[in-house]
Design a binder for these strands. Structure first.
Lengths: 183, 183
DNA sequence: CGCACCATGTAATGCGTTACATGATTTT
DNA sequence: AAAATCATGTAACGCATTACATGGTGCG
């Protein structure tokens, strides 16, 4: 899938691997991520498939950059993938739930500490989604008026992140209280 | 991590690979899953590490089964893992959000169809979590009174699944309306 | 008669993470 | 002086998915 993430961003404009990583971190990070090393590998694969082309851009006082550009064939591949229906639900892997599931014999205070750390982390992410990410999207929409439709959808993905974090925080409070009472 | 899922279940009682797959499907499926083939591979690895032992149980009129039993060393590994704090948030991969993010140029009706299929799928999962899974947990708690504490935590993991699906369904309705209006 | 269930495994492939390797510039 | 940012890659390792392989029993 990383292929399509990269094609998606390159469809807006030409970018380097490094910039693609930044684009991901600013926008899709809460539902799709990738390591830089994997991005470079995948870009090379996309080039072999003819979905992108690359040119070295020499820079003074900075390392040279390899700028990737989407091809017609790359746009076609992206469009084809977008139109393809998803027929199954995605499978999640939630480490916290896994540990919690088997934690009945674990020391109660260790478990509570675990849950409180998670509460902090999720609170932080919640604020990030509500503030930094929301303004980021608004700014893009104002800066590039041709992307209003895109911005509507970006906002929708942000909104699910917000709702999920709200649910998660609510659940953590519920669960901390539950563990205190019943364990 | 699959190692610990298997150890977690084997800590309750000895099981075969096939039964472990069933246990996962009945309980942790919405936050952790695994293919049978991977379970068999991982069980073999656990045996090499001394975390489990296995015995062939011959069966008449059924294929022989290999029953796995957790060792003292396996219990220790499990306990050690459970006590270990999680310091980072898990990273999700949500295919639907990824497609949605890049779908501004996609045909509106194709996108709406995509979202409606998802609504059906999530509705189904929501009911599964609320009904089958809830009763499954209650039954286990009644059947094995020594597992009341465990059942409290199982129920907690189920509850997050429920809350997440509620949020997801809410969001899908929101988003379908949004796409109809603004795209 | 065909499908689902019981039951276990191997092999190939793909994808992702972590570590390694390099090195200048800018910010704190 | 140290840390972060810019910038690109290779290599090893681990884990997961998919396909392949086998074969009996029970049910509709």
């Amino acid at each position: 899938m990383l292929k399509y993430v990269l094609l998606g961003f390159l469809n807006y404009r030409s970018l380097t691997g490094y910039e693609l990583k930044q684009a991901i971190n600013r926008s899709t990070i809460h539902f799709w991520h990738a390591e830089l090393s994997q991005i470079y590998v995948t870009l090379k694969a996309l080039e072999n498939e003819g979905c992108v082309t690359s040119k070295i851009q020499p820079q003074a006082e900075r390392p040279d950059r390899r700028v990737y550009t989407i091809t017609r064939s790359g746009r076609a591949a992206l469009a084809q993938w977008l139109a393809q229906p998803i027929t199954e639900l995605g499978t999640k892997k939630e480490l916290l739930l896994l540990k919690l599931f088997f934690s009945a014999q674990l020391d109660k205070d260790v478990l509570l500490a675990q849950l409180r750390v998670q509460r902090d982390l999720h609170q932080q992410r919640y604020h990030l989604i509500q503030n930094e990410m929301a303004t980021e999207i608004q700014q893009s929409a104002e800066e590039y008026p041709q992307l209003v439709k895109d911005a509507v959808l970006w906002e929708a993905t942000r909104r699910l992140g917000e709702l999920h974090e709200e649910a998660y925080l609510h659940w953590l409070d519920e669960t901390i209280a539950l563990v205190q009472k019943k364990l």
